[in-house]
């Protein structure tokens, strides 16, 4: 199978704190990979390195065969210009824990913003596509509302539609349900569940163990900046190989 994302030897420190220690991971095209682990284990940082929101200290990342954030310069890697990094980011979507919708724009404008500004898509075309995506996340009636008038679950569904509007082959989810009231988690997971069937590649940092088990193709357990265990979700959840994984999962029983 074709590799969509390849992380190799990824290291990252914030000051003396080593957040990522030699992370190596392959994600195949169309795969849904769920990343679980205790807070502070480096899950989000790893995800943010993939679209270069964080710069790794060492190691490389390729997405769809393209080296992210850097180009080869002899034996070294030189960071790309911000314009070229922007072009790389345009090809992958990201959904944030705190939604990060643009509060000064309506729901429709939020979705249309990047396709029009970045992709130079004609406004009518972008709006028609945005309405299609709003139907997908079941929010057509909120098209002209401002984000402040939406519930958390609705905001996150808009954020997913916004990421999809750029027609990415890869979407990164950074704890998409962690900021939601418990009764709103389901509607967001439902959208992600549907999305998983479309063949898009997804990397999902999450605390939703049942989502990881039911929807994920691969489960990654991280602790202290390292990947402790990787495998088929059911196998890892029901019969973890490492004590650290067992200890973490026991809290969800």
């Amino acid at each position: 199978m074709q590799t969509m994302v390849r992380l190799s030897g990824l290291c990252k420190s914030f000051g003396p704190h080593r957040v990522l220690r030699d992370i190596t991971l392959d994600v195949a095209a169309g795969e849904v990979v769920c990343v679980i682990g205790p807070s502070g284990s480096g899950k989000s940082t790893m995800l943010r390195c993939i679209n270069h929101l964080e710069k790794p200290d060492s190691g490389t990342i390729t997405v769809d065969g393209e080296l992210i954030g850097y180009e080869r310069e002899g034996d070294n890697l030189r960071e790309l210009s911000s314009k070229r990094i922007a072009a790389q980011r345009a090809k992958m979507g990201m959904v944030f824990q705190r939604f990060n919708l643009f509060p000064h724009l309506t729901v429709l404008q939020n979705i249309v913003e990047a396709p029009v500004a970045v992709r130079k898509m004609p406004k009518q075309v972008a709006e028609a596509e945005a309405m299609r995506l709003l139907k997908l996340v079941d929010l057509t009636e909120k098209a002209s509302a401002y984000p402040s008038a939406l519930s958390g679950g609705q905001m996150q569904r808009v954020a997913i539609a916004r990421a999809l509007a750029m027609q990415p082959r890869l979407v990164l989810f950074d704890e998409p349900t962690s900021a939601l009231d418990p009764e709103l988690v389901g509607e967001v997971l439902e959208v992600m569940r549907e999305l998983a069937t479309t063949g898009i590649t997804m990397i999902v940092v999450t605390h939703e163990i049942s989502f990881a088990r039911d929807i994920g193709d691969k489960l990654v357990f991280m602790a202290e900046g390292q990947i402790v265990e990787t495998g088929e979700p059911k196998a890892v959840i029901e019969d973890p190989k490492h004590a650290r994984t067992r200890e973490f999962l026991s809290r969800f029983r």
Binding site: N51, A86, A87, A90, F96
Partner: peptide, 17 residues
């Protein structure tokens, strides 16, 4: 909020945009 910048960046916007 810095999340706004990150959201814009993640969508491929240039610094200027």
């Amino acid at each position: 909020d810095s999340g706004q910048t990150e959201a814009g960046r993640s969508l491929g916007m240039s610094d200027n945009q």
